[in-house]
Simulated scan of single mutants.
Amino acid sequence: MTTHSTHFDSPVGRLLALAANDAIIALHILGGKHPPVPAEPWLDSPRLPVFLQLRQELSEYFAGQRRRFELRLAPAGSDFQQAAWLALTRIPYGQTRSYGQQAAAIGRPAAVRAVAAANGRNPIAIVVPCHRVIAANGALTGYAGGLHNKAWLLRLEEGAA
């Protein structure tokens, strides 16, 4: 499997996108936690159709014109991580959930810490909106792309960015 890559700038900083088999497998805010490490060289492919679609959809999102992404996604993770990430995609634009609510949504109400860990390993920032998960007391906690970016994304979705 060939992994394709591209970089581009955004309001939350420089982004690195990875794709394989016409699906996005990673989107990272550079400078954040858990940057991807290539097992083999990535093929720089900025004109790959899935990257063109990603750029378009992110541009619309950052302009406040897109609330739902339509990209084909293929993040690699355990079954538990996949369930946690799928639950993230079901949090409506402009809304937040607590880690406990997310754990309950996947049928594992006692797995709050495991859900938080899975969110911390979410390989597809913004599109798989782990920024929409906050502490039960309303505090902003943990975001691999930086808490300032999490706050900015939430303000964007509230119409205040």
Rank of each mutant, 00 (worst) to 15 (best):
L153M: 02
R132E: 04
A136I: 09
C130W: 03
L52R: 14
W42Q: 01
L18K: 04
L48E: 15
P123Y: 00
F62S: 04
A114Y: 10
R97A: 13
Q101F: 08
I126V: 14
A84M: 00
R155T: 02
A83P: 04
R67W: 03
P11T: 00
L156H: 05
A105Q: 09
T6F: 03
Q101I: 03
A161C: 04
G13P: 06
A23L: 13
A136Q: 10
L156P: 00
G145L: 10
L54T: 13
A17I: 04
P49M: 08
V128W: 04
R47D: 15
V37Y: 02
I124H: 01
L27W: 11
V128K: 00
L27M: 10
I25S: 13
L43A: 07
S59Y: 07
Q82A: 11
L16C: 10
A19M: 09
Y99A: 13
F62P: 02
L54M: 11
N137K: 03
A26F: 04
V127Q: 05
I25L: 06
L43C: 09
G77W: 02
R113Y: 10
P129I: 14
A151Q: 14
L86M: 12
G32N: 12
L18W: 03
D9H: 12
R72L: 13
H34W: 11
A87D: 12
